[in-house]
Write a protein that binds this DNA or RNA. Structure first.
Length: 534
RNA sequence: GCGGGCGUAGCUCAAUGGUAGAGCGUCAGCCUUCCAAGCUGAAUGUUGAGGGUUCGAGUCCCUUCGCCCGCUCCA
């Protein structure tokens, strides 16, 4: 996660203050702490009016470009348009889904950490010994079925009691049976001092809940820790009900939940967060080409919605940091952003992983369903010239993006402090993402200007209201109104002045430059449409 | 999970153990023909929460919640 330090110039996020950004987010209604009036709740954040629209705009941009246009409308590595269909699966599924995916089994065991050696042990694999009959002295932990570890502990214990002990001179018990007081006088494997071991801690990051009103232990279910599995378990349904053919992708956006050990850094690591995920299914021989395709296009996409410059990087994972499902694949890369709190390092926005056939294989095994795909375009040719077809388990390329992290990156990237301007704080959102698309002001609140402003506002809302707010404001000075719009990130302000009454023109004020130009009133819609790219 | 710092109005911050304040912002009115202009006025606090010490606690003590920083963790 570390990267070479970048030169400290205004284009990086090393000089921006996260406190300033968080203060603006609260002041202008982008993001609030969840349950704030009750003292908050760690790891949860609510979006206010501007934040909700900003987030929706980012989600909509993803949906339009990924799903509806099919990877932005460009051709895939096979020379054909990219086919993506959406699903919307449940937060709660049969718990067996998470057993198959590996989320329940692998990490459900209580773990013990050693503060000194940084080693981590499964609690049920740790044993401990003390001198027979001694209820006061130090306890020595060792690893079960590990003779070297046993001998080392025995040697340390002998030294402690200043007496040569054999294995018959000690009592052995399970570490999980120790009390907190006993753990405090226990010497961990590989250490010489007591108190370096933590109490056993459960490390399953999934939220548990109960299905049904009786809420017994038999009714345990989990809130999904990723939206991906909802796609895999519907793979067969989509193939059977939709005229899709490999290669194709299934996409969905939605909430996911993880009991992060340490929620930190504003919304960056939240316990409830929203994902935008694509699972792209292809023939095993094509994974490398599709992996490269998605990796490069996803990078270009983030740049297209405003994350330009050095703050955005593409980073290939080293082999030793790959997830369990990606070891055998073409690779994993992260699209990372240099947040003010990670600078000069980077934080992950989106991961593009080759998941191989891991998930479909797991679900096929656990559910008994046949998840293989019959590809009629492959296989050797029959006498009539038609391919005989090939049956295989598709491989999957997964571009998985964090929506909340995307919003946070956009907030950080957009935040600009320019003390030379009367309104120093400006949110330079890309017009496509900006929650407020335009504002209409009467220069002065009289002489027919308010009426003209109301009419123009109404027209713009009619045409652009589905994309974001169209604001109008007649109160206070024009400078104050411009300043408020700068802080909210509204890219264009249209102002009705004295000349507007006679020649039907308005001024357009650009947020980023403060510059103005005069255009005809009936050209305003066209002007805005062009700027918003619609 | 460990260590450190912090919590007073929407924001930034004052207040020796003794009446909770200022600036900015917000709102209303006046004024105002292009960049947080000016004038007048208004609203806004269980000082994060709970307990304790004290004649009296924003201030001292304990507990708890939350935030920030560093480690740890992030399948």
């Amino acid at each position: 996660m570390t990267a070479p330090a970048a030169p400290a110039n205004a284009d990086t996020n090393q000089t921006k203050s996260m406190d300033d950004i968080m203060a603006l987010c609260k002041r202008r209604g982008f993001i609030f702490q969840a349950s704030e009036i009750y003292g908050g709740i760690n790891g949860f954040w609510d979006y206010g009016p501007l934040g909700a629209q900003l987030k929706k705009n980012l989600r909509d941009a993803w949906w339009q470009d990924v799903v509806m246009k099919g990877a932005g409308g460009q051709l895939g590595p096979n020379g054909k348009p990219v086919s993506i269909v959406p699903v919307d699966s449940c937060l709660i599924q049969n718990p067996k889904v998470w057993e198959a995916s590996g989320h329940v089994g692998g990490f459900n065991d209580p773990m013990v950490d050693c503060r000194e050696t940084k080693a981590r042990y499964r609690a049920d694999h740790l044993m401990c010994m003390g001198k027979k009959g001694d209820k006061q002295g130090q306890i020595y932990a060792f690893i079960e079925h590990d003779d070297a570890s046993f001998d080392a502990a025995l040697k340390k214990l002998s030294k402690y009691v200043k007496q040569e002990l054999s294995k018959d001179d000690v009592d052995v018990c399970a570490f999980t049976g120790l009390s907190a007081e006993e753990i405090a006088i226990t010497v961990g494997p590989g250490t010489k001092e007591v108190g370096t071991l933590t109490a056993p801690r459960a490390f399953n990051l999934m939220f548990k809940t109960y299905v049904g009103a009786t809420a017994s232990e038999d009714d345990i279910a989990y809130l999904r820790p990723e939206t991906a599995q909802g796609i895999f378990i519907n793979f067969k349904n989509v193939v059977d009900s939709t005229r899709v053919a490999l290669p194709f992708g299934i996409a969905q956006t939605g909430k996911a939940f993880r009991n992060e050990v340490t929620p930190r850094n504003f919304t960056f690591r939240s316990r409830e967060f929203e994902q935008m995920e694509i699972e792209f299914f292809c023939h095993p021989s094509e994974t490398k080409a599709w992996y490269t395709f998605w990796r490069d296009w996803r990078m270009a996409w983030w740049q297209s919605i405003g994350l330009k410059g050095d703050n955005l990087v593409l980073r290939e994972h080293d082999k030793d940091e790959l997830a369990h499902y990606a070891k055998e694949g073409a690779g994993t890369s992260d699209i990372e952003y240099r947040f003010p709190f990670t600078a000069p390092g980077f934080g992950e926005l989106e991961g593009i992983a080759d998941r191989t056939d891991f998930d479909l294989r797991q679900h096929a095994q656990h559910s008994g369903a046949k998840l293989e795909y019959f590809d009629t375009t492959r296989g050797e040719l029959a006498p009539n010239g038609q391919p005989k077809g090939e049956r295989y388990l598709p491989h999957v390329i997964e571009p998985s993006a964090g929506l909340d992290r995307g919003v946070l990156a956009i907030l950080c990237e957009s935040y600009t402090k320019d003390d030379s301007r009367p309104s120093p704080e400006i949110m330079r959102f890309h017009p496509r993402i900006a929650p407020i698309k335009a504002a209409v002001f009467p220069l002065v609140n009289k002489d027919g200007m308010p009426e003209m402003a109301a009419k123009l506002t109404s027209e713009l809302r009619q045409r652009f209201g589905h994309l974001g707010f169209i604001e109008t404001d007649a109160k206070q000075s024009i400078g104050k109104r411009y300043a408020r719009m700068d802080e909210a990130g509204c890219p264009f302000c249209f102002t009705i002045d004295g000349d507007s009454l006679t020649d039907q023109t308005v001024t357009v004020r650009d947020r980023d430059t403060g510059g103005q130009e005069r255009i005809a009133m009936d050209k305003v819609s066209g002007f805005l449409a062009e700027k918003l790219g619609v």
